Amino acid sequence: MTRIPSTQALRALESFARHGTVWQAADELNLTRSAVSHQLRLLESSLGFQLMSRVGARVELTPQGAAYALDVRRALSTIAGSAARHAGRGATGVLTVSCPPGLASSWLCPKIGRFHDDFPDVALSLVTPRRLDDVSNPDVDLFITFGHGNLPGQDIELLQEVAFTPLCSPLLVDKLDGLSRPGDLLAANLLHLADFDDWQMWFRQTRLPEDAARTGVVFSDMNLVYSAAIATQGVAMGDRFICHEAIRQGQLVQPFEQSIPSPRSYYMVLPPEKSDNAAVVAFRGWLRDQLQSQAT
């Protein structure tokens, strides 16, 4: 049988393929940049084909390397899912998870039945916080937050970085006679969450007048923004991650390639005293498996 590369090297490749940079992969794996680069070179040498190529100052995966990385991601996801399912045979107890309402309704709730199928003896309760980065509820065993990750004394794991881009109903695109260039948004109704900041940043990046971004309707909750967008009421500055299913089903479309990185990300936060709870361990592994599955 062909010798299987080391798990650390495969994880280094999978992380590099997802993030696109060595330093982000190193940060995720808690390794130095030189260690990640060394693992990638060793993997390339053992495989016998080129994984990476230099394009200017950037290092990118070759088409062959990208295809292999996708296979690796699927394999690691299968292993993680198998471990979670077998661990779940003995997971029991009560588990309360806090999750931001937008992520809960658009991404987590459509999948939550799978957790019950895998862990039937865990009594799960899902609650939403007042603030997206709130971890103050003493009744919660595991928090999913949207913020900067600055929570001293907590066990914190980055789940998903976020980029925002205009999203709208395909029916609205037809109604506006197409959205072929960013300037076409000047004739559209804009939908905002809490303030105008995201749209102003996107207008600045695409060289549109920032003052024009201060129009439209402001909502207090992201669910309201997406509901209005699906109902053809305007164009939302949306998160492709939690809108993945709506985009897949054709309820929302992304008319432009331009996106803006969010300074905030989704994190999994565990109070240290809850980290050994069997139900928490089960949900943590299951959540990672769901993220890996979507990434493939």
Results as ranks from 00 to 15, higher is better:
L172E: 02
V173Q: 10
V97W: 00
L193R: 00
P138Q: 03
L193M: 01
S106W: 06
S180K: 15
V135I: 14
A104I: 00
T206N: 12
P182R: 02
T206V: 15
L171D: 15
D141P: 11
P129R: 04
I156E: 12
T128N: 10
V140R: 05
F164Q: 01
T206G: 04
C99H: 05
H192G: 02
L179W: 11
C99R: 04
F196P: 04
R204Q: 14
M201L: 15
V122Y: 00
S180R: 15
K175C: 14
A104H: 12
F164S: 09
R130T: 15
F203K: 09
A104V: 09
D198L: 01
G149F: 08
M201S: 15
G147Q: 00
G153N: 07
S169I: 04
H148K: 11
R130N: 08
L190V: 10
L176Y: 01
D184W: 10
Q205D: 13
C99K: 05
H116A: 10
L151W: 05
P101F: 12
G183Q: 13
L171G: 15
W202F: 14
R114I: 05
T165N: 12
V135D: 03
W107Q: 02
P152R: 07
C168F: 00
L142G: 03
D117K: 04
G113S: 10
A194Q: 14
D155Y: 07
V122R: 06
S106D: 05
D195W: 10
D174Y: 01
P129Y: 04
F203M: 05
V140E: 06
G147W: 03
A163F: 11
S98G: 05
L190M: 10
L185R: 07
T206S: 07
D155N: 08
